[in-house]
Design a protein around this nucleic acid. Structure first.
Lengths: 172, 172
DNA sequence: TATTGTTATACTCTATAACTATA
DNA sequence: TATAGTTATAGAGTATAACAATA
């Protein structure tokens, strides 16, 4: 009954207790952090964390994004993004327009108000994360944590093909 | 001894770019992980992650918990917990009964079915976290991550008085 | 045929406030 | 008065499927 997986170099090791503890600590800490962050964003900008992510992604990048590119990793269904984009557009934070090179696509552009909102909310956002996340950490901790989570994120993003893509039955 | 740094003696430092990158990498990685984990729990046990947390907390501990203790850090409003407990009880996974030492409290007990469900779902859960979170990490990474997140979690849990306690601010 | 995006709809979940009962 | 829990209800958010238009 030894289920030795051959697709992995490691020995069987179903996950050491230490790993399970690490996993739960990670999930709980981030859950608490998320909750506080949501409070701050709602209080100071009247937006959700998802909406902040979408705006921040637009503010950080060089220009407009298509709906699909914008959704990537933030919203996990097409309709979910359309819903959020509708709210943001109604609030005057983004605009949606046609894409020159692909008539199917919609280009999402950050408005001045949208950019201003990000700028207005970011300091408090940063302050919350500093107080709750970084305060108990040394500089070395932060470096290591950044390195670890970047690797994990890239690892996860590499696995599924596309976030908003529906599961399609296609024989390769 | 939770704070390695002195209280607020730091210079202003609005948060270095490296910290901001670390923060976003953390949030995005955990968001992706959460989504995959929810899929697994829904598929194999037809429960949400919140419900899994409540069951796991009961399964891990030595006995029944009061509603408030059960909610701590998982659900952030009393009614939210009552709602989830109602679902779990209706599904036969927990029972609710009176508490001997405090007639206001409700003791939540895991049923056999509840314990069995946790046992049935845990392997797949562990497998997902192993594949998505631990695969790209070395043993040293895991150790450091566990240490970091434990410290962060304890730091955050120390701040608010009680999770399910409503914010009572007496305004005249 | 596949992909991009929207709409309609049903559903889950959360939070606020009012309420009861006990400490 | 404060705390533990429930209820009612409203609102936000998500996912599925059907749809139209374009590649």
């Amino acid at each position: 009954m030894t289920d030795t997986h051959s697709d992995d170099v490691r020995p069987v090791q179903p996950l050491q207790p230490e790993q399970l503890g690490t996993y739960f600590a990670l999930m709980e800490a981030v859950s608490l952090l998320q909750h506080q962050v949501e409070q701050q964003l709602r209080a100071e900008g009247d937006i959700s964390y998802v909406q902040f992510q979408l705006l921040a992604r637009l503010a950080h990048g060089p220009g407009p994004l298509t709906m699909t590119d914008l959704a990537d990793g933030v919203v996990y269904s097409r309709s979910g993004l359309t819903y959020q984009a509708g709210l943001l557009e109604k609030a005057g934070l983004i605009t949606r327009g046609p894409a020159p090179d692909d008539d199917r696509a919609t280009l999402v552009t950050l408005t001045g108000a949208g950019r201003a909102l990000v700028a207005r909310v970011l300091p408090g956002h940063v302050e919350v994360s500093r107080r709750l996340l970084f305060d108990p950490l040394t500089d070395d901790d932060v470096r290591h944590l950044g390195d670890i989570m970047t690797r994990v994120r890239d690892h996860m993003r590499a696995r599924p093909p596309r976030s908003a893509a529906p599961r399609k039955r296609q024989r390769s």
